[in-house]
Design a protein around this nucleic acid. Structure first.
Lengths: 244, 244
DNA sequence: CGCCAGGTTGATTTCGCTCAAGCAATGTGG
DNA sequence: CCACATTGCTTGAGCGAAATCAACCTGGCG
């Protein structure tokens, strides 16, 4: 626990933790890791904080060491949508850095997080000195593009109910625990309001639809804790699911 | 004009045309351009042809030398959505190639096109020999990700009417001509049915909504030709637009 | 304590989908 | 050259999912 959420803390080398989780960074040589660690700045953020804002210039790259961050888009009419979540080990701000654009979205902390920042000059230096790193990012970005297109398809074609079920299944890997008897316990990290923003729906619709799913006996609700006795029945519904 | 749409035609060096249009390929050295041109295979495709299909293994990269290609996703329930358009100079299939996945979508020709194919081994050889090329692709992919997230937001939050207006404005750069008196002439390249698939709506809804917009005096329709006397009024509506 | 944000619920409306029919343009085979 | 499918588009009627508007409840917090 860090008492002061604003205190920089460069003593702890971020990449040591990261490197274990097999992502783009393991392309770096020991010397590059040293360079990285000397220049990276880490701090903790409380839930609700904003890491960078839509329209801001992109100053560098953020790595989520722990916690959860939502990437949100808001338009001039106040319409809001969460386009991506960043979990432990995920990188934030690489899209505008690589596309040489300003931030097109706001990154806001959902669960208290520890975030490492690497500024743009360092990143460009590393990318130049180690093409492998670029290839890793390329692969990663290409996968992210695939996921974005997948979600595009889903939001365009599927009902709120189906989209909620999708999210539940999706968050299983990060926030779910399956007991020996096959029961799945999901501890949802975000508010229902944010869930609504993730699937492009109103909070009221999410509330009602969750109740419907519960009434159908597919899930049990207790605050943000979801118990799913028969995951297979949920998955079934996805495959037989209907239009809007 | 090419009489035989199936005839391969490697004599014409594809990259010469491409290199002029300032894209990722201008990172290549003359020697690499030679290597590329010796290995690339070009042919023409009539409208309606499929270049590659959803689920297919990714064999390489396609470059649209001229024409128009739609990237379409179809799910098991027959729901269909166009997730991207590829215009002249755009590259197809780079996402699965770089993400090392199979094709997640079908590429179908909308307007008669000439497409150049570079197989995966060549691409990997070029990417290895010239890291700059990878950086260009990285930049490009990051931009594509930004656009996908933008569209994600729109489909999640905006009405069919607003989405149609968005597309009209978007296609302005490729298919629009503005006369001296400020009137915009848009020659829509795809059927209304395909437009519906692009915005996640039914053809009937598109038809009705286009009529509504016409009745409001914002556009004039004549087949696939759209005349917009006051572009600013269309743009205005985007900024005051309402939810779903 | 009062305040407020998050959440629930109800009543009502509306947007967009479904189903169905019809029409014009294009193509095809006899 | 006509009869006929076929395809893209339009329009109408009806319906249903989800949004809107509004009230109210809850727990956390200054």
């Amino acid at each position: 626990m860090n008492k002061d959420p604003l205190k920089h803390d460069t003593a702890e080398p971020c990449l040591d933790a990261r490197i274990r989780t097999k992502n783009e960074w393991d392309a770096l040589t020991p010397a590059e890791i040293g360079l990285f660690n000397r220049n990276v700045v880490c701090r903790t953020y409380d839930a609700g904080r904003v890491i960078f804002g839509q329209g801001d210039q992109c100053r560098g790259l953020y790595i989520v060491e722990r916690g959860l961050v939502a990437v949100r888009k808001v338009d001039e009419n106040g319409l809001s949508a969460i386009v991506r979540l960043a979990h432990q080990g995920d990188t934030l701000g690489y899209r505008p850095l690589l596309a040489k654009e300003n931030h097109r979205a706001t990154a806001e902390v959902i669960k208290d997080s520890r975030i490492c920042f690497a500024d743009a000059p360092i990143m460009h230096r590393l990318l130049l000195s180690n093409p492998q790193l670029g290839m890793r990012f390329l692969e990663h970005t290409a996968q992210a593009l695939g996921e974005a297109e997948e979600r595009l398809f889903q939001v365009a074609a599927l009902s709120v109910r189906t989209r909620i079920i999708h999210i539940l299944i999706l968050l299983r890997s990060h926030y779910g625990k399956t007991t020996s008897d096959g029961t799945l316990y999901l501890d949802m990290p975000m508010s229902w309001r944010d869930l609504a923003d993730m699937i492009g729906a109103r909070p009221e619709s999410v509330s009602r639809t969750l109740r419907d799913i519960k009434d159908d006996g597919l899930i049990n609700l207790n605050g943000r804790k979801v118990r799913i006795d028969r995951v297979d029945r949920l998955v079934d519904e996805l495959h037989h699911s209907v239009h809007h």
